[in-house]
């Protein structure tokens, strides 16, 4: 896991896991299909990424499929950082 992925993973754990929820989140853990992040709560993750990395992720790209894993989210961030 690189720095970008680690930052995303740490945010997901802090923002979405309830206290006492000891599920491991790795780079390919399914976040949305796995029930860790729901599409309703996903907006805060998008906002975090945009603020932290100074990017704009168009709504059309911020799909549940694109946000389903830490590695997928990292790839999306990379795409818009360029």
């Amino acid at each position: 896991m690189d720095d970008l992925q680690r930052t995303i993973r740490d945010y997901v754990v802090k923002e979405y896991l309830e206290e006492g929820d000891d599920r491991e989140v790795g780079e390919s853990t399914p976040l949305i299909t796995g029930g860790i992040v729901d599409s309703f709560s996903m907006v805060s993750l998008k906002r975090f990424l945009e603020k932290r990395y100074g990017i704009q992720i168009p709504d059309a790209e911020a799909t549940p499929a694109a946000f389903d894993t830490v590695s997928g989210i990292a790839a999306l961030v990379q795409k818009f950082r360029k």
Binding site: Y16, E18, S41, V43, S44, R47
Partner: peptide, 8 residues
Amino acid sequence: QDTYKHSD
């Protein structure tokens, strides 16, 4: 829109 953890 934003959300908070249930009753947290």
